[in-house]
Structures are given as structure tokens and as C-alpha cells.
Design a protein around this nucleic acid. Structure first.
Lengths: 211, 211
DNA sequence: CGCAGTGATGGCAGTAGCTGACATCACTCC
DNA sequence: GGAGTGATGTCAGCTACTGCCATCACTGCG
């Protein structure tokens, strides 16, 4: 046996998740996490860059999976379809962890700080995706646009998959349909503004006017 | 004359911008900013939620402009084209501040914290855009997708407008072309992977494999 | 004229995220 | 058995950010 209990990082991750769930992210201090894991605060910061990062350590493998899927996609394929294939693969890999994904998303949704981190992880996913496309010969701008709008579809699909109560379709199916709808929307094939729903006076999230 | 110098917020903003430029964002302390503005740290936090927010106070008016442009767009118009019209209007409004935009973007690019904030502001822009579309009668998902992919085009266009050295086109023109390219990409009209550029062994930004 | 209320600011103490520097000590390798 | 090595502990310190109360010009009102 070693000098210390093994798997310090894992214990920290587990403790953090538990506490984030029990008391919320903001209310949980790093010292508490470390104590529950039988370690010190200093050690926590040796394993995770900051308090938020615990929730995002899985992003790296997701990115790897995504890029690999693009690389493995059959060659004569339009950029957007290569993106589609890759996103479907990722969706399938996430399928069995729906409960965890839902729980995790609830925590993120309750914290602006975590939302920021989530967005930058998705952006990083998008960059990697774009880079993978470029290596297939897709042009600079086209690669960026295909990747970023693909990520948009991914997000939209994710929310559906997790949000809708009676949702029976798999994430993969939903993902497929989101991409289809993306294509429809960007090609102008959208119910073009026929019967606006009662056009309320609108007290929306628009910022206050200054003039 | 009042008890205090007028326009405290403006002075804080100016001092912060200067210091971020002189010493970098991270190296600048809030105390320094407040001192240069002839105020105290406590007052800084009464005007700005945090140190980052100083750089993003303009986002609100941008959002207002965007939403207004969607509202003012002619009625029988596909969702993606309403987005296009609105984004062009915003691009035009930014045209005269290119130097400032460039300078500001350089600071943001040098700081992950600021990039996170930038992303959440863009996401908020996207939500507002989607909401405006829904009020025109565009469906839930379609609105989200049109808005988010529109924002993607906005970002891509922005980087071009600011990045390319010999760029003579206006932001509006670039924006228009980005949207056009978005449509091309999502409709599958993309040079579909013909001659991959020398397929290097790739030591990219892909995370390390574990197996 | 005086007086109570208001609003922007200062002062101060405190919390918590995060870092650098150094010590400790099991384990490994020679 | 002695010199690394690597993961952890300890401690001091900085700084972002907050709560609470004091201050004091200005305003409106009797």
C-alpha cells in the first residue's frame, strides 16, 4: 500500500459532485470538498485548475471522440454531413448517461460562472471540429461555419433530449433531426412569418432602452 | 457642482481600459483602476458586477439594436434572412469603431476569463435574437437554430473584418458573404473533400489519447 | 430657514479562490 | 544504503468581491 489512499483525483471529483448537488456550487467551498476527500485545499488545486473545472473534466475525451469520428467518416462527404456523422457518434456515446447529463446540466444552469465555462468548452469543441474538417480539405471559413452551426444543433438537440418530459427518442435520433432542421432553416425553407402569435406588447429580456 | 466629480462610471471605465491596455487585464488590480479614477475599490463594484464586466458594458445596446432590427425587418421573410438583415445592421453600426474593436479583441484574446465572458454575451445575443424570431412566428427550434448559426456567421465575419491585414470590405459586406457561405455549407454545397492538404501526421489540439 | 430623506461614496472587516515556497516522506533505482 | 522523485501537507499572502455602517451634499417640504 502506498503512503496515501489511491485515486486522490477521483475522490476529489466525487466529493465535489456530491457537495455541488447537496448545497449548490456557490455554497460549496473548496476546503469542504478537500475535507470530504480526506485531502487539503492545496491538493485540490493541484488536480483541478479551479473550482469549476471539476465538472468539465470529461470534455477532453468527448473532444477526442468527436475528432476521431470526423477522421473516420467516409471521404466523399459534404462538410456538414461529416459534422453530422461525428455528432451522431458523440450523441450515441452519451446516450447511456442521460441521468447524469441531466443532473449535471441542472447544476450548470443554476450558475452563470458554470455556464461561461460550459460555453468555452463547447467553443473548444467547435475549434477542434473545424480543424478536423480542414484536414479533410474543407476551406477555412466553411470549416468554421460548418463546425459552429453543427455545435449549435448539438446544443439544441441536447436541450430537447434532456428537457422534454415524455421524450422517447434517442439522443442520436434527436441530433439527426436537429441537423435536418438546421439545413432547412439555413436554406430558407422555414415557415416564413405567417401568423405571428398575437404579437404581445413584449416585455422581454431586451435591455432597457436609453434614448 | 456636486459633491463628487461627475461621471464616476465613465471615469472607471476609462481608467480600466487604459490599465488593461498598459499592463494587461490580469496584472491590473481593481484598486489601481479605482485610484486612477479618483475613487475607491468599493465604488468600482457598485458600478460593475466584476472586473471583467467593464469590457462588456456595450453589449446591451448592441442587443437592443439587433432585436430592433429584427422587429423592423419586412414581414414575409425567411427566418435566416431576417437574421441576416439584423446582423448587417449591427455590422454597419460597428463599422466606424473598427480600431476600438480590434484593440478590445486583442485584450480579450489574451485572457481565457474574458473569452468566457465574451461567449456568454454572444449566447445572450443569440437568445434575444431567437426570441425576436419567435415573435415573428418562427418555430421554437427553428428560431434557436437560425439565431445560433447566425451568431456563428457573425463571429466568423468579425474575425475576418478585424484580422485580415489588407481587408478593404466593410463589415457589412463581409457579414453578408459569411451568411451566404453559411447557407452554402449547410446545404451541402461545399467542396466535398477532394484533395486533403498533404494529410500531415497531425499533432493538433486534440487532447491526449488515453489508451 | 431648518429639517428629514435620499443617493452616491468612503471605510472597514471579512470570506474565499488561488498561488508560491518549502517541508515531508514513501517509494524507486542504482 | 543513499540519492532522487513525486504526491502531499503547511503556511503565508494576494486579490476579487461582499456586507454593513458612516458621511455628506443635495432636494423637497413645512
Amino acid at each position: 500500500m502506498g503512503r496515501w489512499e489511491p485515486n486522490a483525483r477521483g475522490r476529489l471529483e466525487k466529493a465535489a459532485m456530491e457537495l455541488y448537488g447537496e448545497h449548490g456550487f456557490h455554497q460549496t467551498t473548496v476546503t469542504e470538498i478537500a475535507e470530504r476527500a480526506g485531502l487539503t485545499e492545496r491538493t485540490f488545486f493541484r488536480h483541478f485548475a479551479d473550482k469549476k473545472e471539476v465538472l468539465f473534466s470529461g470534455a477532453a475525451s468527448l473532444q477526442e471522440l468527436l475528432v476521431q469520428a470526423v477522421d473516420d467518416a467516409p471521404e466523399p462527404l459534404a462538410a456538414i454531413d461529416a459534422v453530422g456523422v461525428a455528432l451522431e457518434a458523440v450523441a450515441e456515446a452519451m446516450q447511456e448517461r442521460r441521468d447524469f447529463a441531466k443532473w449535471r446540466q441542472a447544476i450548470i444552469a443554476a450558475n452563470p460562472d458554470l455556464q461561461e465555462r460550459e460555453l468555452i468548452k463547447l467553443a473548444s469543441l467547435g475549434s477542434a471540429l473545424a480543424a478536423a474538417l480542414r484536414e479533410r480539405g474543407v476551406g477555412e471559413t466553411a470549416a468554421s461555419l460548418a463546425a459552429e452551426s453543427g455545435i449549435a444543433a448539438f446544443r439544441v438537440g441536447f436541450e430537447r433530449w434532456i428537457g422534454e418530459a415524455g421524450e422517447t427518442r434517442t439522443y442520436r435520433q434527436i441530433m439527426k433531426e436537429s441537423l435536418k432542421e438546421l439545413k432547412a432553416v439555413t436554406s430558407g425553407r422555414t415557415p416564413p412569418t405567417r401568423t405571428p402569435p398575437a404579437r404581445t406588447p413584449r416585455g422581454r429580456e431586451r435591455p432597457h432602452a436609453h434614448r
